[in-house]
């Protein structure tokens, strides 16, 4: 039937259908993205207590205050610590797991990668429960350390150990997930390339650094981008376990934004912080992609 109609009408109908199908997304985009986005910039220039009807236009004052705010500076400093630790350890962990999975016999390879992947499915809340009590004073771990090794650590009072515990939790969760990407990429390297490398006498570690790793650079770039977002946005674990402490040793941007905006109701300032944080994420991901592109041009295949 459609074929008899003039083409123009059919095109118009298709466009109408397209917009109809996309309409839920368009509404969502306008109401829950664009309006909040504009509102965010407007809010960031306001001194406004979420609960009060009075507000005051303060221009860039919120941003200027943020640069002198101890909590913000701590969150900024910690965000780099989280970034470096989480990205490097989970990438290395992912690579090790992927290499180990890749040398498993074909029959068990699938199960192998799934076993490593399970941590990724756990809720940060559930793992925090476990961590809190595993590291509590009377737990089997601390009793063992005290009685057998004479080590008494108050895990969440000591800034270094508190930070280390949170890093371990996150790396534990992410490594197997990234390994899944890396395993897929390794299997994507064709047998021809491997054979050619073997004929050239390139095996073992040499092959890994000169063939496997360079060929996986695009996947590694993806992982670095994902890990940057995740590591900068950490909040569940410090929120439940340390509330950002001791001192400000484990606090993060998200946590400080949450406390500012929703426990101190300082919504304008909280939003200004969120914008600064967004800029940091954007710049970080930009740098990662530029560096990785350069590396790929130099070593990639």
């Amino acid at each position: 039937m459609d074929r008899k109609k003039p083409k123009k009408l059919q095109y118009a109908r298709e466009t109408a259908a397209g917009f109809l199908f996309c309409s839920p997304y368009i509404v969502f985009f306008l109401v829950l993205f664009l309006i909040p986005l504009i509102w965010a910039f407007w809010l960031s220039a306001m001194n406004w207590n979420l609960m009060s009807p009075n507000r005051e236009f303060v221009g860039l004052q919120n941003f200027l205050n943020a640069f002198r705010d101890k909590k913000v500076l701590a969150a900024f400093k910690n965000s780099w610590k989280y970034f470096i630790c989480v990205v490097s350890f989970s990438l290395i962990g992912g690579l090790v797991i992927a290499l180990l999975v890749n040398r498993m016999p074909m029959r068990v390879r699938g199960i192998g990668s799934v076993l490593f992947f399970i941590p990724y499915l756990t809720s940060g809340v559930a793992v925090s429960v476990m961590t809190k009590y595993l590291f509590s004073y009377n737990s089997i771990l601390n009793t063992f350390l005290r009685e057998k090794l004479n080590i008494g650590i108050n895990w969440f009072i000591n800034p270094t150990s508190a930070f280390a515990v949170i890093i371990i939790m996150i790396v534990w969760k992410l490594s197997g997930y990234y390994a899944l990407y890396l395993t897929a990429a390794m299997q994507g390297i064709s047998a021809d390339v491997k054979e050619a490398a073997e004929l050239d006498g390139s095996t073992g570690i040499h092959r890994f650094f000169h063939i496997t790793l360079p060929m996986m650079l695009p996947t590694i770039t993806t992982i670095l981008t994902l890990a940057a977002g995740t590591s900068l946005g950490v909040y569940t674990e410090p929120f439940l376990l340390t509330e950002g402490g001791p001192g400000n040793a484990t606090t993060t941007w998200t946590l400080e934004i949450y406390y500012r905006a929703f426990t101190r109701f300082d919504s304008g300032y909280g939003t200004a912080m969120a914008i600064l944080f967004a800029i940091q994420i954007f710049v970080t991901i930009r740098i990662i992609n530029t560096v990785m592109r350069k590396l790929n041009q130099k070593y990639g295949c």
């Binding site: 298709e14 985009f29 829950l32 909040p36 965010a40 977002g229 919504s267 969120a274 944080f277």
Partner: peptide
Amino acid sequence: LKHFNGKRIIFNLLLFEMFFPKIMLLVPK
């Protein structure tokens, strides 16, 4: 839908949205 005349707009909306971290919209949302 080959003749859907709004692909480009929708695609740009999607890309634009991906560009901003969600935490930025927490308070206004």
